[in-house]
Design a protein around this nucleic acid. Structure first.
Lengths: 170, 170
DNA sequence: CTTGGAATGTCAACAAGGCTGACATAAATT
DNA sequence: AATTTATGTCAGCCTTGTTGACATTCCAAG
């Protein structure tokens, strides 16, 4: 971590112009970031919302619906519509909780895992190429800034991975 | 620019796990990135689409509708719905092109500039705090990676700022 | 054991903001 | 004169978000 107050012109990176550049960079980069998965999803009856659900179920198999609601930050009605279509198409399955049988633990089926792989392959390919072009130092900075940009709640969830992955009936 | 092939373990930053972390960082950070303006916009009859239009009109005053279509990557019907409400509410005004009178050159009114300022103040405040916390080196890396993540077309537009800012009748 | 509240599902209705297709107009270009 | 370009507009559709209301199941506390 560099002390921003050390040098003479070291605060130049905080000019409004630079901040605006950063804002636009986020805008354009996010478009690129989502474009490959979006291309795959279109025509499959799925959208970005399905991608997000599938991603986080893959990331934390056995996560509950409530957990997913927290992570995704949408209403249960919205999530439910997405999950329903994923159930119907056999991409995700819900198992009643062993300990608490109100909870549904979510898992990808083989078919779901295949879609997840195809989506994340595309997205990681772009990430990998960007990372490779930028180099490890830039990548570290990239992650540092993104983390500092999150709300506290979001940062908490970003850092606390691999949880809600227990329980769930066979 | 660091050569990723130089060291021994220098490719560790390209593991799938690291790429996935980067993907989630983008997801969560983008939520934070948009949340402050979204809060301001909600209740004003406006949404993110209005914000984007206002932002880029402020960035390049006198830009044409076609220009904006390219930048935003939406259909003219979509953009037109947004512009219409901005015209009606007196936030944006369109002047017929001097040289080519088919073109409409877009400008923020005082009122529009005020909204733009309020939105961008909020967004820059978050950016500034993230930048300050991360330091100039991290910020440079942040921008490098984002740039590498854009599509060529988007990168071209990101780099070519301040254009389409001429002409327009008084 | 009863009851309150939590976790989940579902129905209905609505809005924002994407999209396509079709058509209109004015002005520039050929 | 014919075509192309820049723009606007109408109609309709989709995804994904929202609220509100209500039912079910079941844990936990009184």
């Amino acid at each position: 971590m560099v002390d921003a107050k050390s040098g003479d012109d070291s605060l130049l990176f905080l000019t409004d112009e630079n901040l605006r550049r950063g804002i636009e960079a986020m805008f354009f980069a996010y478009r690129g970031f989502t474009s490959d998965p979006d291309r795959i999803l279109q025509g499959l009856n799925y959208g970005r919302a399905h991608h997000r659900a599938v991603h986080f179920i893959h990331r934390a198999p056995g996560t509950t619906v409530g957990n997913l609601l927290d992570i995704l930050g949408v209403t249960k009605q919205s999530l439910n519509r997405v999950l329903r279509s994923l159930f119907e198409d056999g991409l995700v399955e819900a198992r009643v909780g062993r300990k608490d049988r109100r909870e549904r633990h979510l898992y990808l089926t083989q078919k779901g895992a295949a879609l997840e792989r195809s989506l994340s392959d595309a997205q990681r390919a772009r990430m990998r190429s960007a990372y490779r072009a930028a180099g490890p130092v830039a990548v570290a900075g990239f992650r540092t800034v993104l983390e500092a940009m999150m709300d506290d709640e979001q940062r908490r969830q970003y850092q606390a991975q691999y949880q809600g992955a227990k329980d769930g009936a066979p």
